[in-house]
């Protein structure tokens, strides 16, 4: 996926496609002081994680008034905390106009998921039925996903070393080797690691909340599903260094030993 417009003439740069996982601030309403207080609280939970990271503002669940929306204030507040707002995802035309006025990049929204669909997915996971038999009535995106997933699975058999990043943009990621500390593996779907997971694993990066992470030994620095994440410190108490699966239930990451699954 490289821009290969080079025609032998030496150019100053080349365009390359880059895939990176980003943190999104999912905004429900905006009130300056509340925003800063919440931000400070989040940062205090994992100061290292937020230092100098890029974030996008996700407008998909915004319920406040457009007139209250002040991107300049958001950018300024974030910058004071060493966080760089780079763009806005989703939102209506007015909101996007405001964003453009604040020189923010516009990112298309993720596939529209109705509120009811969300609840369906959550309660489905609760009952442990997940998506095995492509359930009859699941509306919207979740039902459409599995068909493409099978073909887009990426299988890696070499150790993923510190500093390396492996990405499965459309499907599952299966790794038949260790994922070392300092490495990062990302997938639109599930992540399976048949070895110790010592690095960071981010499943469901396009918002697929039914994605799961499976590993033979949980020693991860960070595990994330559809943007909900837990850092190493919070993973220590449950299933650490054993075979587990991690899934999202009611917006919380739940770790279950594989032998009890």
């Amino acid at each position: 996926m490289t821009d290969t417009a080079t025609t032998g003439v030496k150019q100053g740069f080349q365009l390359k496609s880059a895939n990176l996982s980003m943190t999104a601030i999912e905004l429900y309403f905006f009130e300056k002081d509340d925003f800063e207080a919440t931000l400070r609280d989040k940062i205090s939970q994992a100061p290292g994680f937020f230092k100098d990271i890029p974030v996008i503002i996700s407008m998909e669940k915004y319920e406040g008034l457009d007139s209250e929306l002040d991107f300049f204030s958001i950018i300024g507040t974030c910058r004071r905390h060493s966080i760089h707002v780079v763009g806005v995802r989703g939102g209506n035309d007015d909101q996007r106009r405001l964003a453009r006025g604040a020189s923010l990049a516009l990112i298309p929204g993720s596939q529209p998921r109705g509120r009811s669909g969300d609840q369906e997915a959550a309660s489905g996971a609760n009952q442990e039925e997940a998506q095995e038999p492509p359930s009859e009535t699941t509306p919207g995106a979740p039902a459409a996903a599995p068909s493409s997933v099978a073909t887009a699975t990426r299988i890696i058999s070499q150790t993923v070393r510190s500093g390396q990043q492996i990405y499965a943009p459309e499907g599952d990621l299966v790794i038949l080797a260790p994922v070392q500390a300092g490495a990062e593996v990302l997938a639109a779907g599930n992540i399976h690691v048949y070895g110790p997971l010592r690095g960071r694993a981010l499943a469901g990066i396009h918002g697929e909340e039914s994605a799961r992470v499976f590993c033979q030994s949980l020693e991860a620095e960070l595990v994330s599903i559809a943007g909900h994440y837990k850092i190493s410190e919070d993973l220590q108490d449950n299933g650490w260094k054993s075979a587990v699966q991690i899934q999202l239930r009611d917006d919380l990451l739940v770790v279950t030993p594989l032998d009890k699954a």
């Binding site: 070499q158 150790t159 070393r161 510190s162 500093g163 390396q164 070392q180 500390a181 300092g182 490495a183």
Partner: peptide
């Protein structure tokens, strides 16, 4: 050990 792992990744890429 961590840094060695990193350099192994660079050797491989």
């Amino acid at each position: 050990v961590r840094d060695s792992d990193r350099i192994l990744g660079i050797l491989q890429s």
